[in-house]
């Protein structure tokens, strides 16, 4: 049983990786080139998300810099996560498929070290979520998200115009973050069982014993890893292709020059919406 399942994990893992690249990234990139999105974004340096930000009052980010959307703790968290992920991925793959001599000790110790780091990082992330009180950004879903989600899907399948930014994350992107947290929790849980089968305690009896439990958890750890990699690959690709200015702010603290979008072609005809100032709260809302 374990013999067969282990081989299936390998082959389905390969198929998933190949499927993401051949079935999504490559066709999407080719279509992006053919429809001129690559030229618009990376040659002309024109980003719809920034233009919307400057001209469309219904956008969530209307005339706001990008930076405040990504507070410093989240940026540090993401950096630590990225480094830990890369090292955990490489060392984990080495532990399962050793491809050079003499690396087991180093790779295993690296896996242990970053295992702790990423677990602590995840706990801190939840603490931040609690204190920042912004869980609604990640964990809500309402009826408007359905039609919005369709427009997002149409944009990514090249059948619709650029979508709106009505909330911080679009409805296809939003569940990815809780999914990653859940996957990280599962990965941490299974990882600890593999490392110390005895921590399973009496629970390991369900599987027959500590070693049996570890063997099953190893399978789950491997399958989960592949789904995580698939999700993060798509996340990284779309982040780079569709929201590179945001990426630069997030990674390198470099705000884009939004002034270039202020006087773009057609602006003469464009009428700036008047702002209605609510004196009681001091907030400004656009009026039509």
């Amino acid at each position: 049983m374990l013999e067969t399942l282990n081989v299936w994990v390998d082959t389905i893992g390969f198929l998933l990786a190949a499927g993401i690249v051949i079935g999504f990234i490559v066709p999407h990139f080719i279509a992006s080139v053919l429809t001129g999105r690559v030229k618009k974004h990376f040659v002309d340096d024109y980003w719809d998300s920034l233009a919307h930000r400057m001209h469309d009052p219904k956008q969530f980010h209307y005339k706001q810099p990008i930076g405040p959307d990504f507070p410093q703790p989240i940026r540090v968290w993401h950096w630590v996560n990225l480094v830990s992920w890369m090292i955990l991925l490489i060392s984990g793959l080495y532990i399962r498929y050793p491809w050079f001599s003499g690396g087991r000790e180093v790779m295993r110790n690296a896996h242990y070290f970053f295992m702790y780091l990423i677990t602590i990082n995840l706990i801190l992330r939840f603490a931040y979520l609690y204190f920042a009180k912004n869980w609604r950004d990640y964990l809500t879903f309402d009826k408007t998200d359905i039609s919005w989600g369709i427009s997002v899907a149409r944009y990514y399948t090249f059948t619709g115009p650029p979508y709106d930014h009505l909330k911080k994350f679009n409805p296809l992107q939003r569940p990815a973050y809780p999914a990653i947290w859940a996957m990280l929790i599962l990965q941490a849980f299974t990882g600890f069982i593999i490392w110390q089968p005895a921590v399973g305690g009496l629970f390991s009896g369900i599987f027959g014993g500590p070693a049996d439990m570890a063997a099953w958890m190893r399978l789950v750890h491997n399958i989960n890893m592949r789904f995580m990699v698939a999700l993060v690959t798509i996340h990284s690709y779309l982040g780079s292709m569709e929201d590179f200015p945001v990426l630069k702010v997030f990674w390198f603290w470099k705000e884009p020059d939004l002034t270039k979008y202020e006087h773009e072609h057609g602006d003469e005809a464009h009428q700036e919406p008047k702002l209605e100032i609510d004196e009681s709260t001091g907030s400004a809302t656009p009026s039509h």
Binding site: L2, E3, N6, P197, P210, A211
Partner: peptide, 19 residues
């Protein structure tokens, strides 16, 4: 035999052995 390294394995675990 597997129990030399693995913690109290059963015959289910040894189904990995052919691999």
């Amino acid at each position: 035999t597997c129990g030399k390294c693995h913690d109290r394995p059963t015959k289910n675990l040894t189904s990995y052995a052919p691999l």
